[in-house]
């Protein structure tokens, strides 16, 4: 078990199974198709991300360096939250990018009864340590426990 200290972007607690990508998470390429065609598990459809391709991320602890791609990214993430198909939490090794931040903040401010804690600045060691299937807990004050 290891603990990592990050920074809270949007608050909350969560405990979920890790799904990990070491490449940038392209939000539009990953999620648009599954949101559009009723996949409640939100399987990733990004052909450029073999680590995630075909894996469901709804309710999972999505561990990533940052998001990339189209500026619809934040809107897509906001819609995933509104449709309750969002990850249980998003855990960024790097500083969060502007698109993911927008999606998480829009959901936090404009949607009711939605929780998707987002922690960033967890460090490269976090992404080296965490593996698919591990249990990740988002505690208080930006502390993330991986076991």
């Amino acid at each position: 078990m290891r603990q990592f200290q990050g920074r809270i972007v949007t608050p909350g607690n969560a405990k979920a199974e890790a799904v990990v990508t070491h490449a940038g998470f392209n939000t539009l390429a990953s999620l648009q198709k599954s949101l559009q065609f009723g996949d409640k598990t939100a399987k990733v459809n990004d052909q450029n991300n073999p680590e995630l391709y075909g894996k469901p991320i709804a309710g999972k602890a999505l561990c990533l360096p940052q998001t990339i791609g189209s500026t619809t990214g934040g809107m897509v993430l906001y819609c995933a939250c509104a449709m309750k198909r969002q990850p249980a939490c998003m855990l960024f090794a790097n500083h969060i990018d502007s698109l993911a931040a927008a999606g998480a903040i829009l959901a936090d401010v404009w949607l009711e009864d939605i929780s998707m804690p987002v922690i960033d600045c967890l460090g490269e060691e976090f992404l080296s340590y965490v593996k698919d299937g591990m249990t990740v807990t988002v505690g208080d004050h930006g502390v993330v426990t991986v076991e």
């Binding site: 500026t71 990214g73 934040g74 809107m75 906001y78 502007s98 698109l99 927008a102």
Partner: peptide, 9 residues
């Protein structure tokens, strides 16, 4: 301009 997301724009 920052890389603003849809809706944030």
């Amino acid at each position: 301009c920052n890389r603003n997301s849809g809706i944030m724009d």
